[in-house]
Design a protein around this nucleic acid. Structure first.
Lengths: 194, 194
DNA sequence: TGTACATCAGTGAACGCGCGTTCACTGATGTAC
DNA sequence: TGTACATCAGTGAACGCGCGTTCACTGATGTAC
């Protein structure tokens, strides 16, 4: 057993968790390197020993959020086999996730890569898997739609649900109570699954 | 005729236009006070003589964008009377606007008020009018839905279209060619107007 | 019309601050013999 | 097991820079008489 390696990983973990909690509480804009290291109980420099920079740390947090959502969605569809029910439950799970982890979830969409750094492959893969979950249900519902067309339809379905959820949670527009949002999401999914 | 007043208004106008062009070209994140004043051909200090701060100037640009969109939408519905056609043309106009003024449009959604400044009343009003345009068509289509329920339905309709458009234009996800996006939007509206 | 003074558009150097990132240093842990 | 040296986790003061905002100043325009 190597104490050094363990200590390092443990610190990296604490930093990740501290960043997650910060973002979850104050959103991405309020995030400062000093706060994260202070919360994690270590010196400022450690952030740069454990991660190449602050943006990379944020990417890790966002990746964790995507994985958590994916896991929730998979668990949600596992209970049913009827594709319409599956699509409905996926939409509701998505809404519930966005409500519960509002700031973590917006962070995934707000965070921009600096310079022209490419989007991490992890991200792209996770998105692919996310759409894949929808795609399975959609494929069962509309067996005649396949390939690129199915992909596009899945993205449209996701986009529609995502838009309703996002606008609903944004306080910029007159805010809607969550239960009404659920109702509206039901109507939306009903129409989209016809 | 007062030369001073005219000069002042003219400068304010030039600053507004310079900011609009900057945002249109580089997005909100690249916007710096120095660039705007340089583009407008005046000294840095003028920005603070004409506007209370940079954020206020951004608000003005965004307000202009909202007004422009609103005008496009009104023009678009004016051509038809059938509510389904109206909703379809509204969605397509929205897409076209977002494609043409991509950065201006995201600026409207990206810009956050600093501290706890309230959202300008202008903004809220413009949003109200925007939803009103959709509401008129929707009201004709579903005369039995009224009041709060109609409001919610309108917001849902807008959210769905907005989501599809936004995700479609975001390069983060595998990007979709515009013509496919139009197709998908057609399908979406078809289903939503049933 | 002319003169004296007040006002205010316009200037841009300088201020101030937040904040990401670095780096020389310390001391505990690991390694070689 | 002990000793000498190497490595590396951990520190936090200092650096550097971007950038919004201010402010003392200039000169043109407006006003009063």
């Amino acid at each position: 057993m190597n104490k050094r390696l363990m200590a390092r990983q443990e610190t990296a973990e604490r930093l990740l968790e501290a960043a997650r909690i910060r973002i979850s509480g104050n959103g991405l804009t309020g995030l400062r390197a000093r706060d994260v290291t202070a919360d994690a109980g270590c010196a400022l420099g450690m952030l740069y020993k454990c991660y190449s920079d602050l943006d990379t740390l944020i990417d890790r947090v966002n990746m964790g959020t995507l994985v958590m959502l994916l896991s929730n969605l998979r668990q949600a569809v596992a209970g049913t086999t009827d594709p319409v029910d599956q699509l409905k439950v996926l939409a509701k799970t998505y809404l519930a996730f966005a409500v519960e982890h509002r700031n973590l979830w917006s962070s995934v969409f707000e965070h921009r890569q600096k310079d022209q750094r490419p989007i991490p492959q992890d991200y792209v893969d996770a998105n692919q898997r996310l759409l894949g979950v929808i795609g399975e249900a959609m494929g069962k519902l509309k067996p005649d739609i396949v390939g690129d067309e199915l992909d596009a339809r899945v993205r449209t379905y996701f986009g529609a649900v995502h838009g309703v959820v996002t606008l609903g949670l944004q306080e910029r527009f007159v805010s809607v109570p969550t239960h009404r949002l659920e109702q509206e999401l039901d109507v939306l999914v009903d129409q989209l699954t016809r």
